[in-house]
Write a protein that binds this DNA or RNA. Structure first.
Lengths: 192, 192
DNA sequence: GACTGGATGCTAGCACTGCTAGACAATCGA
DNA sequence: TCGATTGTCTAGCAGTGCTAGCATCCAGTC
């Protein structure tokens, strides 16, 4: 039944369109501007069509978050593998992380600030999220130091980076302090 | 004209009631539950009364944030002054910070996650916010180490604490890792 | 080739949100 | 006692996420 296959393909394609459009709209005008009406209008379908793909707006945010997690993992790995030496690698990783958040604020928010209905730190955490954490762990685990679990070290380092971006983006920290902040963080936290 | 004085007093009192009620409702049921209608009902006035005190919901959140900042500053100073030795003091400070966020999640969100329309890292930042940062600085400045500006050090340490709480509260980090995370943070970041 | 049943997408509408215009009543100064 | 001012309320607007129920269209059957 090639007809049903075609329909299935079109459905998958439309779902991609929804996620991509939501992401685009969020990056352009912020998540507040991503309403079901506007989103429906942009994909040139009526509102209820969204609900035949996703349970609700939250699930759309979740889909954007997963897409973002996969991209971030790839970006972090690319950076790490292109840098030699543990210390330099950690610095590059941190910059890559902050750079990703800075370039994709809406996606970053979908991943870590908004409720996308995703499980975390849990066995049924979606694969892309676990993988993004794994990408951090691969580089950070090297510099955890003796007697410190790589997982815990990664969590703490990650939390510091997360705090740095969110506070900076929210205007709570001056932007020009980020770079020196990263240096301080790497110098003190990472064991040579 | 004592009549006007009484009215003025009542107005101030009602404004306090609004802020306290918003805070209470937010802590009980989350900020999503704090709608202008529900808030008006709880203070036993009609909705428009809220707008005679505040420009909008955002300003109410801002008022809760300021109240929270003052409390947090006091709590941090109390902890710091009750502990001897820089290292122990920093540890106690970090625990106090995380404890405050854990006990007052809605207030913490008003301060750092939600938009309360407040200026930050700026000359016209409200006094309570500057003072909360100052309270951190007083203790953290001692352990910044040579060649590191106390202000920058405080920002980075604060960012780490902020990341730790928000990620933990959002279910992104396991709660049982917090304590070891704090120890790691203090051991590595603070210079003896 | 006409018919039918099920899938598909639409219109219309619900209950809610933040916010405001305009009517009304209470209170004040003269 | 009267007019003006102040304070509060009712009612309503435009927007939100989400859904019931109706049209339409098209694949598969006779």
């Amino acid at each position: 039944m090639p007809v049903q296959e075609r329909k299935q393909r079109e459905r998958v394609e439309r779902e991609r369109l929804i996620v991509a459009t939501a992401r685009e709209l969020a990056e352009q005008q912020g998540w507040d501007a991503v309403t079901t009406r506007r989103l429906a209008e942009r994909i040139e379908y009526s509102q209820p069509v969204l609900y035949s793909h996703f349970r609700g707006k939250r699930e759309i945010i979740g889909a954007v978050a997963l897409e973002g997690a996969a991209e971030m993992a790839a970006a972090l790995r690319a950076t790490a593998s292109a840098t030699d030496g543990p210390h330099a690698r950690v610095t590059a990783l941190a910059r890559a992380y902050l750079g990703f958040a800075e370039r994709n604020p809406a996606v970053y928010d979908a991943m870590f600030q908004l409720d996308g209905g995703l499980a975390f730190a849990d066995e049924d955490t979606p694969e892309p999220l676990k993988d993004a954490f794994a990408a951090l762990l691969e580089t950070l685990g090297e510099v955890a130091g003796d007697g410190v679990q790589p997982g815990l070290f990664t969590e703490v380092f990650w939390a510091a980076l997360h705090g740095l971006t969110t506070l900076t983006r929210a205007g709570r920290l001056p932007r020009e302090d980020t770079e020196r902040g990263v240096e301080l963080l790497v110098d003190r936290l990472a064991v040579a």
